[in-house]
């Protein structure tokens, strides 16, 4: 991480925003309104220094590279864009993503990929608590471990965890599916381990391939909803 703030040598069709001298608002305005319709340049962002909402709300197939650590909501609501953070991300990375691809080279703080409907989020390091909370269809691949309450109420989508998971993984899970390679401290209510099918191994292999992680899909276990919370059970005595 020694050279986080050093951008690669500039080539043709690269647009650089140095946030030491430019505001996030200017960067985002460019990405929202001033991108050429065709042949958009690669956008390189330097000195993010923990700023919030970098490359938020994008709606174009542009490549954005951020060199350094970012704050809250990087690539939030992303659509079509490919955003790479060469550093760590604050809370809510790629939250509400619709499509596109977001890669965090370092770790991600809480609620990474929250409510994301589509696209793919790759976190090369660890993800903190509530990763993939309320996931609605996106794919999340975490190279490290995830914190507690990850995939809480996740409705659709797939989550691959190469490391361990904290407490209450997949609590009140709907139809999202979790694949975990390491230890699970505890499963949440209504989440259960299920056998890995050939189809599951294919899914894990595909997502690991996209993320660039070299693990054997056979090492992963599948977690899905037992669907016991789908209907109110008056006899459960409020004990779930």
């Amino acid at each position: 991480m020694a050279h986080l703030n050093q951008a690669p040598a500039l080539e043709e069709s690269v647009r650089e925003f140095d946030l030491a001298s430019t505001t996030v608002r200017e960067l985002n305005r460019y990405l929202h309104k001033d991108l050429p319709a065709a042949d958009a340049p690669r956008v390189v962002v330097t000195h993010p220094d923990g700023a919030h909402s970098i490359a938020c709300g994008l709606d174009a197939p542009v490549d954005v590279e951020v060199h350094g650590h970012v704050g809250y909501y990087v690539a939030g609501m992303n659509k079509h864009a490919r955003v790479t953070v060469h550093g760590n991300a604050g809370p809510g990375a790629a939250e509400n993503m619709m499509s596109g691809f977001v890669r965090i080279r370092g770790y991600a703080s809480t609620s990474a990929g929250a409510s994301a409907r589509g696209g793919c989020l790759v976190i090369e390091g660890d993800a903190s608590l509530r990763c993939g909370i309320s996931l609605k269809g996106a794919d999340i691949v975490v190279g490290g471990s995830v914190g507690s309450f990850s995939a809480f109420m996740a409705q659709a989508g797939r989550m691959v965890i190469c490391g361990d998971a904290g407490d209450a993984l997949g609590d009140s899970l709907y139809e999202a599916v979790i694949y975990v390679r390491g230890e699970v401290k505890s499963l949440g209510a209504d989440a259960r381990f299920e056998p890995m099918s050939a189809e599951d191994r294919k899914v894990v292999a595909e997502l690991l391939g996209i993320a660039g992680f070299k693990h054997d899909p056979a090492e992963f276990r599948r977690i899905a909803s037992a669907r016991q919370l789908y209907h109110w059970n008056a006899d459960a005595n409020q004990e779930y």
């Binding site: 986080l4 809250y72 604050g90």
Partner: peptide, 12 residues
């Protein structure tokens, strides 16, 4: 947040 640490010497 990190934005309060970004200026510190050799923080990277």
């Amino acid at each position: 947040e990190f934005r309060s640490l970004a200026h510190l010497p050799r923080v990277h």
